[in-house]
Every structure is written in C-alpha cells, then in structure tokens.
C-alpha cells in the first residue's frame, strides 16, 4: 500500500544533489543522503512478557534485541534497541499506519505502539571519513572495532539528541527529531566540508 499524497521531507527546501566542500585528491570521502520515505514505529513493552515478545516477532519477523545498542533485522526492517523497554522499528515506507497496525494487532495490550514515521529525519553518511565527521559532533567511541555494523547508540550532536546506527561498514544513519532535520543536515555537511562530500538522491 502506497500513500497517495507525497510526503514532504524536512529537508525539501535545502536538499541539493551534487559534490560540495573542499576539492580533495581522490574526490569526496563522505556521501550524504536522506533515508526516506520510511515507516518508523516506537515499540514499548516488557521483554519478559511473552505476549509482547511473541507479538513483536509476529509483527516484524525478528526477536527483540535485548542487549543495549543492538539492532535486529528481518528483511528490510530493523529493530533498534533504545532503552530497556523501548525499541524503534524502521523500514521503507509501508503506507500510512500499516506498520503501526501490524504491531498493535500482534501485541494487543501488551505493548505501547506509536507511529513516529513523520517525526524523524534520517541522514545517511558513508565513506572513509564518515566516522571523522561524527567524531566532531558526538562524544561516542566511533572506532571501527567498537561501533560496528549492527550497533546503535543515542547521543547528542550540536546539542540535538540523536540516534546513530551503523547499518554497514563505514555507513551511519543519524536520526533526529524532524524539526532539527535541517539544522542537523547543515551541521553535518559543514563538518564534512574539509573532506569534500557528495549528496546523493534520497533512498530508503
């Protein structure tokens, strides 16, 4: 099911594909893109409540990750640990309310499910210097052996609360509240200026 009305990104007014920043030998070493449109659902419940954990598995196909900072995946969906009783389910847009309903139906009263698909801006950075850009902003350990694919952490960049995930080697997704989207985009691309960066077409 697709939404009939096109969703407008928080970055709509400033999004421009191309190559920017310093001219560096070997070309830009950071690539940016907005991940959109996405379905994002906040899932809360008690992991030791079988009705809830079974419900989550039914709704999205993967087990609840209970190790802090872990991400479970099932097909194109990721289930990110946020807090002891909170997760974020993220996947390419399934249509308004569809993912939320899947969780509600499967978990019943055992879980608190709320759609936040429109409430987040997700910025993807990849490339050899993506880590360095993030190091300028967040007080996290981004070392290759520490912040590995399949891991996530919440922290702050430029005073904004962020969720940062590492879906693949040298690839990071920065989630911020939608209202901070433009600020975060401007901040991150500015921080990448010295390396040269490209902006790619948005994709999920």
């Amino acid at each position: 099911m697709v939404d009939l009305t096109e969703r407008v990104s928080a970055l709509a007014a400033i999004y421009e594909t191309g190559t920017f920043g310093a001219t560096v030998d070997g070309g830009p070493s950071v690539a940016f893109s907005e991940r959109r449109p996405l379905s994002i659902v906040h899932v809360a419940g008690k992991p030791d409540d079988k009705a809830f954990s079974d419900g989550v598995k039914t709704a999205c196909g993967c087990d609840l990750p209970t190790t802090p900072g872990d991400i479970a995946t099932s097909g194109d969906l990721s289930l990110v640990w946020l807090a002891p009783e909170r997760w974020l389910a993220v996947c390419p847009n399934r249509g308004s309310g569809v993912l939320e309903a899947a969780f509600r139906d499967a978990c019943g009263d055992s879980g608190a499910i709320i759609d936040v698909s429109h409430g987040r801006t997700v910025i993807r950075l990849s490339g050899a210097n993506a880590r360095t850009v993030l190091m300028k902003g967040a007080p996290l350990d981004f070392h290759k052996k520490v912040f590995t694919p399949g891991r996530a952490a919440q922290s702050a960049i430029s005073q904004c609360g962020t969720l940062i995930t590492c879906p693949a080697e040298d690839t990071f997704d920065v989630y911020v509240f939608r209202a901070f989207g433009q600020h975060m985009w401007e901040w991150l691309t500015d921080a990448a200026g010295e390396f040269g960066y490209s902006v790619e077409t948005p994709a999920t």
């Binding site: 809360a44 608190a112 709320i114 936040v116 429109h118 409430g119 987040r120 509240f177 939608r178 209202a179």
Partner: peptide, 10 residues
C-alpha cells in the same frame, strides 16, 4: 505506562 514524545510527528 509508556510515554513517548510525538511533538514532531504531528
């Protein structure tokens, strides 16, 4: 009870 900020969703 679970509380979640949805300011930016709407």
């Amino acid at each position: 009870v679970h509380v979640v900020s949805v300011t930016e969703e709407w």
